[in-house]
Amino acid sequence: MANATETSDVPRTAVRPADDERNVKLLFLVPAVVYLLLLSVVPFIYSVYLSLFDARLTRLDRKFFIGLENYQNLLTDPLFLKAIQNTVVLTVSSISLEIVFGFLCAKVFLSLREMRTGQVLRSLAILPMMITPICVGLMFSYILNPTLGVANYLLSSIGVEGPSWFGDPTFALPTVIFINAWQWTPFMMLLMLAGLVSIPSSLYEAAELEGAKWHHIARWIELPAIRDVIIIGLILRVIDNLKLFDLVYVTTRGGPGDATELITYFAYRQDFRFFQVGYGSAAAVIILLMSIVVTTFAVSFLRRNQR
């Protein structure tokens, strides 16, 4: 408005092309940016603010500023510490399984990639990764159920008594890890396959002529070709595992005891079971900080490698 008087000698219809262009460009970008600010940045800042209060979801008009007390309590809360420990164990072991088995599966399908049967089998084998996580959880609850499950029936037919997979504290977390790895191994497999197909077959032939053993080929030819895709897969899977919720929500609900308590599930329960939204928000902030640290570290590692 202030400019209106200064530019009043310019005919109003003649908008300068540069200005016009600038506005059009803003039109492309601004809606998405504003939307993202409103839907993720603003709520997140509010979460940080809320984490400094003793606040209950049922009575949000009466909240008390308590500074960093929620964070102090979290770091001495055995359940939260157990949740962090479980999340780290889950993340490290399921990703390790995914990488090892993903690589083996990728090698198998690589050698069959020119064969129609191989392609059909591969497209069936990747089904787990896209299907709804709660359905995956329920599927395995059904299969591993101690009374009606087919897994323990098959075990008993060879004389082994299967445990209560989700009910026994020693088996619960490994079972969740196994299911998680089952769902995501196909993803790692596809990633590695994408890296492996880029290796020219002349390189394999040369290696064989030189008398290289399979582990030489794996170490010096295949690993360098798939290293970047492994790192990308790693970043995405770490973030996913920090967010993991659905799987334990429909299988163990964090139990038995605290055996499968995970950080996102912990935060969810604080917010919506105990209505301690201040405490829950503090947990959520810590989850986000963990994702940021991991991602920044991994991305800078990736960029350094690419240069």
Binding site: V41, P43, F44, I239, D271, V277, S281, L288, S291, I292
Partner: peptide
């Protein structure tokens, strides 16, 4: 980077 944000961190404010 906003993709890294865990949904739980925005759930209560939303």
């Amino acid at each position: 980077s906003t993709r890294m944000m865990p949904p739980i961190a925005a759930a209560v404010p939303l």
